[in-house]
């Protein structure tokens, strides 16, 4: 995947030199092993800062609406999931297609940094990616692992690795995965009895510090004032009471219903390693099963919770 970075840099240098875009949003090398950081590049000299590797797990669609110029375009490098969130942004009128120049990047998945860290007792001091082979170094040992074995869960179950919308592709499309049981994780929770399900979610969020990194890393969360920050009326308490933590996670998830692309940025961002996708995955499964809907694939269709249809499968209104 890192071979496409030269092409990305060439495309970006050309776009900036010709003034076709005002800036390029991409990823830059991080300051510590296994890290990358979103960056806005405005001059062709800085294009060399751009990288693309298996640590670029955040979703760049999240950065687009903050930096839109009044006139002209910005370019954004987009993996499959980023492109789906750009579509969602367009469907929800956050950005228009002609403001964007999308550099599509086919993706073979991002690594689960916690899974890799768990292979070591001490801290990782170096991380080298060479195709599917990752070489990870700590003071105690050097380990070679296959990227396939340490992919994030959302990447393992991803069926849209190629960008769904783009102006140019930085590489040939990659083969899409087909899955026998795309929602095994949801089914696993659903098979528990209600008390065990409740206990599962209580255990899941017990270390939540309410930093809201999950919300802020999510491209769907662009409300000017989030419900947790409202003070008149105040919908939810601000402390560490379980009730308030539950309310935050439940409502955050529900606000993503029919919109979530399962990009995994929320889990990537969580400092406490909470798999908040356990909430949104259920919604994604329902959206697919009830409405045949996957978010961010079609710029023409309205999202299922955005329309009224006489053949709505729900019978909830009594």
């Amino acid at each position: 995947m890192d071979t496409c970075i030269e092409k990305i840099r060439t495309i970006c240098a050309d776009l900036l030199a010709k003034g076709k875009v005002q800036k390029v949003i991409g990823f830059a090398e991080g300051s510590i092993p296994m890290a990358s950081r979103p960056i806005a590049v405005t001059s062709k000299e800085d294009v060399a800062k751009l990288v693309f590797n298996a640590t670029c797990g955040l979703n760049l669609a999240n950065y687009v609406s903050d930096v839109l110029p009044k006139e002209g375009k910005i370019a954004v490098t987009a993996k499959g999931c980023d492109s789906r969130n750009l579509v969602t942004h367009m469907v929800e009128n956050q950005v228009s297609r002609d403001q964007l120049y999308i550099i599509g990047v086919p993706c073979t998945g991002m690594v689960d940094k916690r899974k890799i860290a768990a292979l070591f007792e001490d801290e990782i001091t170096d991380f080298i990616e060479d195709g599917d082979t990752l070489t990870i170094v700590s003071p105690q040992k050097k380990e070679k692992v296959s990227k396939k074995d340490v992919l994030r869960h959302n990447c393992r179950v991803c069926t849209h690795r190629n960008p769904v919308v783009f102006d140019v592709m930085a590489a040939e499309p990659v083969e899409e995965q087909s899955l026998d049981q795309p929602f095994a994780d949801v089914d696993h929770i659903a098979a528990m009895d209600p008390a065990a399900r409740w206990a599962h979610f209580q255990e899941l969020t017990k270390n939540c510090i309410r930093c809201y990194a999950c919300r802020n890393a999510c491209p769907l969360c662009y409300c000017p004032t989030c419900f947790v920050d409202e003070s008149s009326p105040q919908w939810v308490g601000k402390g560490q009471d379980k009730t308030d933590i539950n309310t935050f996670h439940f409502l955050r998830a529900f606000h993503c219903a029919g919109r979530c692309t399962d990009c995994g940025a929320c889990v990537e961002a969580c400092p406490m390693g909470i798999n908040v996708r356990d909430f949104t995955r259920k919604l994604n499964k329902d959206a697919l099963e009830l409405f045949g809907w996957e978010a961010g694939l079609d710029m023409e269709k309205r999202p299922p919770l955005d329309v009224y249809s006489p053949d709505d499968p729900n019978d909830f209104i009594k």
Binding site: C211, Y212, A213, N216
Partner: peptide, 9 residues
């Protein structure tokens, strides 16, 4: 500040 998502981490 560009990359900051303004979480409180």
């Amino acid at each position: 500040a560009f990359s900051c998502i303004n979480c409180g981490t």
